[in-house]
Design a protein around this nucleic acid. Structure first.
Lengths: 360, 360
DNA sequence: CCAAAGTTAGCAAACGCTTTCCGATTCGAA
DNA sequence: TTCGAATCGGAAAGCGTTTGCTAACTTTGG
């Protein structure tokens, strides 16, 4: 009776390999870890035995010895928001490539959920946590920072000293959008914000106001409507703009879902996008290219965000990481012009510029 | 110097609590586990100490003793497909409620990825795995089933004996859609399939053919077009249907993303939905209600699916689970009528039925 | 007031698997 | 023969928790 047979679900252990190959478990371990003091021929025999019995080194036991679980936590606000799965995907790819596993949690903007999630991750001994949501208790964060627990806030985070941050350059991103519209000839450019109790939507709105000012354009309060980064929010905000005595010729939205909501609201009216009004989003989620019409948007690269988050965590986890003390990481953006933006009506003949909608 | 201070990132252990409360670690453990042999007053002191030092029991160490990691694996095909995040959400909620954590992996339909993911999950010692994708190697599955490793296939799975399955009643679901359209007066009802190399899209198509036959309706081959369960696939398939000499008056799609793709393809034409053609989806993803027009679809409850998967796994994991030997679980569906379906043009006056599109 | 029964807390082993230190063996060279 | 290098095996260490057993203390009954 092999030692495997009286263990739960018969997982194969290093002992089974040792028995099969006729060597000690020490030799198997050294073989698996590529330690050069093992005879190449013997190593070959061991590898064969590993194949035959289907041995998979037990990560938990390894964690026991190394003191590192090689698991990372990833906290997002809501997994059903299409932006996050794309980011999760990238994060996971990169983590796995570095030998880490990812524990994902979705807070749904619920502080109680966030706290219990954080607690669960710590109980699970994750090596680090990336946070992409708001509402993590400052007390807890302080305690973790004090312990030098690797914790990185991605496009979020409380205002505390000595915190690892991945920041998106909103100033540049929003400016790209505003300049694009201004260059097309737009003068009245409205803005639909995200939930303004959070840092990054605020940063986006402020970036809009600054970019408008730089160009000498007006950004009156009635042209800045609050949304909540969901499609519903975009619909409501757009309907609010539709009540204005004079419709702006362009709208920039704080994220793509909002922009898609705005498109929906406009679709119910007699106004056409982009002929009557241009719409620009932010994020460049996958869905943006399938909107009607395909959405002009400011791309925030998920891959870059995820890569920065992982690097920042690795810097905190691995003792001899080159950028160990770098606390702030920056991610840039770029404009993706599709078909939801064009010249304001009447400013130029319709045959110029990025194809002006359907021409039946 | 507390014992915590020379451990990695200063995690607090049971020893720190014991020292703080002036008791042994055994007493702390018994307190945490609510074992009645501990003096209530002492217990109070221990709980206070736990609060003060911020103790979190280490799950890995507990796993060491119990032999169970209390982690579940969840394998999906692509996390960026909006259907899956909703399911992941439900799965995670239920798992956490039962004290489990979830390791999520996305295969992107890549068999190599699937295999390495499965291997990683086993290395991590998960207590069970729910699989919602195809292409898991039969050899591996056989080996795991033989070991009685808890493994459940949700709406998927190879054709092997003695396998835990969660199955959706497609016969009923698709029949609901077909009958809905037939009742409205449709006679030519086309079907856009999913990728036909997989079991569940095949089941859906067969269900369509059966439902049509039951009603004495024709389902000629040119009315059954292959999609791939993505929006792009839906667009392409719909364009293929548009080439037919006579357009069917209704289309059922194998999933909602396909239906949304079909809506997009139709939007580029002069045909209006639902006046010229009715479109029915399957899944009822969140996005369905925000489609243009809101999509009539067959709801497959994520919550039910997730609940069945968790129950099935728990039955395999927990030694004294009531339904220990139940291998097949079923999930039902129900029709959700929105605005993408109505009477075929000309069959009835336009003022009847579920609001017939925009009326400017 | 003492013996027996009943509480309650502490000590130490066990848990499972890997890694690794250190000692043992072999073999060739000096 | 002795020494050193190359390899391998035995066995301990390592993690933090749980738990069986024991001992001390308290209560009860005679």
């Amino acid at each position: 009776m092999s030692s495997a047979e009286h263990r739960r679900h018969g997982a194969v252990s290093i002992r089974d390999v040792a028995k099969r190959a006729g060597v000690s478990i020490a030799t198997v371990s050294r073989t698996v870890n590529q330690i050069p003091t093992v005879n190449p021929e013997l190593a070959k025999k061991v590898w064969k035995a590993i194949e035959e019995v289907g041995y998979l080194p037990n990560t938990q036991a390894r964690a026991l010895v190394s003191g590192r679980s090689r698991m990372l936590g990833l906290i997002v606000s809501e997994i059903t928001n299409p932006f996050f799965p794309e980011l999760i995907q990238e994060f996971e790819n990169l983590a796995v490539a570095q030998g880490y596993e990812v524990l994902i949690g979705s807070t749904n903007y619920d502080p109680a959920r966030t706290e219990s999630l954080m607690r669960r991750l710590l109980q699970r001994n994750v090596d680090g946590v990336a946070v992409m949501t708001f509402g993590v208790e400052e007390e807890l964060v302080k305690k973790l920072v004090e312990r030098e627990f690797p914790l990185v806030f991605v496009d979020a985070g409380p205002d505390l000293p000595n915190i690892r941050l991945v920041q998106v350059d909103y100033g540049e991103g929003i400016r790209q959008g505003v300049q694009h519209l201004a260059a097309l000839g737009h003068r009245t450019i409205a803005f639909i914000t995200g939930p303004l109790n959070q840092r990054s939507p605020l940063a986006r709105r402020d970036a809009y106001i600054r970019a408008m000012a730089e160009l000498g354009l007006q950004a009156p309060p009635e042209h800045v409507v609050e949304g909540n980064h969901t499609m519903e929010g975009g619909i409501n905000a757009m309907e609010q703009l539709l009540l204005l005595p004079e419709l702006p010729t362009a709208v920039i939205c704080s994220n793509d879902m909002t922009a898609i909501g705005a498109l929906h609201a406009l679709h119910r009216t007699t106004y056409r996008v982009p002929d009557d009004i241009s719409v620009v989003g932010f994020d460049d989620i996958h869905l943006a290219q399938f909107a009607l019409p395909p959405l002009t948007t400011v791309q925030m690269s998920c891959k870059d965000l995820a890569a920065a988050a992982i690097e920042s965590l690795r810097a905190g986890i691995e003792p001899d990481h080159p950028r160990q003390h770098k606390k702030e990481w920056h991610v840039s953006t770029r404009l993706v012009v599709r078909r939801s933006s064009t010249f304001p009506r009447g400013s130029l003949p319709a045959l110029v510029g990025p194809a002006a909608g359907k021409t039946p």
